[in-house]
Design a binder for these strands. Structure first.
Lengths: 333, 333
DNA sequence: GTTAGCACTCGGTACACTCGAGTGCTAAGC
DNA sequence: GCTTAGCACTCGAGTGTACCGAGTGCTAAC
């Protein structure tokens, strides 16, 4: 643990570096009023902080830069709360007051909002579709042997799967029967817990019905349930084009992104810094996440991805507030 | 118009520059066997080509690089056909042979395919939802005053809009009546041509029905009907991070992308080069597009966005083949 | 019309040098 | 004993110079 002086010096270094992206020297720190000592004393402390792994020097005769460990301490112990400006808060409030329409669109817009607030890339993972109850199921024939199963859920999500009707064209009546049968079975339940189909007596109908239920309940959820906004902002955060490429490649793989956020949350973190993120390509990035709750239960995640040199106070506040408001908004509807 | 020798010299410059990204000098060109003259002669021709605007010198004592006009000539007159490797063709064939499932997913995957084939960003614009006929319409109440209108179209697309039911909660029967009424009206027709609603006699029902139809037919289509794949590859095409940022910002704005592709097609082009693209941020990019046809009618577009220094033969071939196969694939289902 | 030859241009690289930011250490001071 | 002024030292960044070589444009010969 660091004593007060070391802590405030570390804090000064981190804040200054986040601001300027330049290595910070002892003289600049000595000017910070919370640090009431001379630059020589600061230098002594800096070398201790470096020895203990909180800072590094890019080269002799340069200032210091925080390490992941330095950022970690800053985030855990030195981050002031409530770093969000009034107009930012207003923007969030306005957004959730005026937003409407389909869930997907709303989540997508939320990711853009968060990205706009922070100037980093933002990620929103939607509530699992299984959480909602089924309001309606329908089977529509598209081609002689292909039908589309469409389930409308209570949260406005529409799940659809194409279903192969089998080798020989089933009659329309069979399809209709299967549709009605599945509807009777699933409506009011969750897709996660479809229950067991009761046979109708007609094997063809039962076969189709089983396929429909299997299709609808097999969630390739994660793939489609994540919204990344403002990925282009990553290009402003780094000046090595190679780094940008790596980060963008990750952000394009929705499955990876979802897993990443889940991982961070599972580790009980709200911030993962640099190497903590666990992906080579994101070694220079930090990830800030927060779950959001609907009726007291965490159902999804919002987060941002930015450089380790991130404005943590604002980022944390923005993510926290957006996740909270998003949860509340979803609870209302 | 350029004589044969100038043309083959221009061609050599363009091909070499595309390959190496380095200004091309007269000596290198003189080595190309199609150009059977000495470097001195080449130099004379180069200075003519420069005077006529096909080439520029970054500075005296450097080689030449093509201008937009130079690329344009190359594309129009010098591009060999069929520049696609066998395994690339195979990849496309395999993709369309094995792909299945929902249209959106398939278009999304197509954009990734095309991006993977070319190493540039790829764009796929889906068929307008209005083109298909309605197979089913349903109105599902989600909240006291909000319902979701869901239309299932013959091509497997599901259109949904949330509909405000009005200030006072309408009875379930009214909603059901409206739902049935709209269904009777729309099924079998296109959303582009919904026809006129016949009044039922009940003003509340009619009011809801009108809202549903209005919602479903007002296409904010373009926004949701475009799929961009492999945007991260743009980072590999430029070394100025600022350029990358600009390009990515454009690619994130789906509306802009759709408009862009439409523009290019409307101008009767299959390639727009540099300034021809018409967007400041894409001044260093070229766009290759091709419409795809379903039953003889152009219904959508595929395209790629890459640097002006693009491998045009392969890019053109890939876009052409993918668009053709995509059209065929959609016609079959 | 083509080409060999050559003077010339100019960016890139290497090198030396300076400047200054920043350090670490030491010795004096509170 | 902790703090701090002072100072020697380090080293990157910036600058000026020289040089090299790629590449040109021009001229004169073929």
């Amino acid at each position: 643990m660091l004593d007060d002086r070391k802590a405030s010096i570390l804090r000064a270094v981190v804040e200054e570096y986040i601001e300027t992206a330049q290595p910070v020297g002892s003289a600049r720190i000595a000017q910070v009023k919370e640090v009431n000592v001379s630059s020589a004393t600061v230098r002594n402390e800096l070398s201790v902080l470096e020895r203990e792994g909180y800072l590094v020097q890019p080269h002799t005769s340069a200032g210091r830069i925080p390490t992941d460990k330095g950022y970690r301490f800053f985030v855990d112990h030195l981050t002031p709360n409530g770093g969000l400006q009034a107009n930012q808060r207003q923007r969030i409030r306005d957004f959730f007051d005026t937003t409407h329409g389909a869930l997907e669109q709303m989540l997508h817009d939320t990711s853009r909002l968060l990205s706009g607030l922070t100037d980093y890339a933002a990620v929103v993972v939607g509530p699992p579709h299984e959480a909602a109850t089924v309001r309606s199921v329908q089977l529509v024939v598209l081609a002689p042997r292909v039908a589309l199963a469409v389930a409308i859920l209570s949260n406005g999500v529409v799940e659809k799967r194409s279903v192969d009707l089998g080798s020989e064209p089933a009659g329309d009546d069979r399809v209709a029967a299967a549709s009605a049968h599945v509807a009777a079975q699933l409506v009011g339940r969750s897709l996660a817990d479809p229950g067991r189909l009761t046979p109708t007596g007609d094997p063809v109908t039962d076969d189709i019905a089983a396929k429909v239920v299997a299709g609808l309940t097999s969630g390739h959820d994660d793939e489609e349930n994540v919204f990344v906004g403002g990925a282009s902002r990553m290009a402003a955060s780094f000046d090595a084009v190679e780094t940008v490429r790596g980060v963008l490649t990750i952000l394009e793989q929705q499955y990876v992104v979802v897993t990443l956020l889940k991982d961070v949350l599972d580790r009980g973190l709200s911030v993962a810094i640099g190497a903590e993120v666990g992906l080579e390509s994101l070694a220079e990035c930090s990830v800030v996440v927060a779950p959001y709750e609907v009726e007291g239960e965490a159902v999804g995640t919002v987060g941002i991805v930015g450089p380790t040199r991130m404005k943590y106070p604002q980022a944390l506040a923005a993510v926290a507030l957006v996740s909270q408001r998003l949860g509340r908004h979803l609870s209302e509807s």
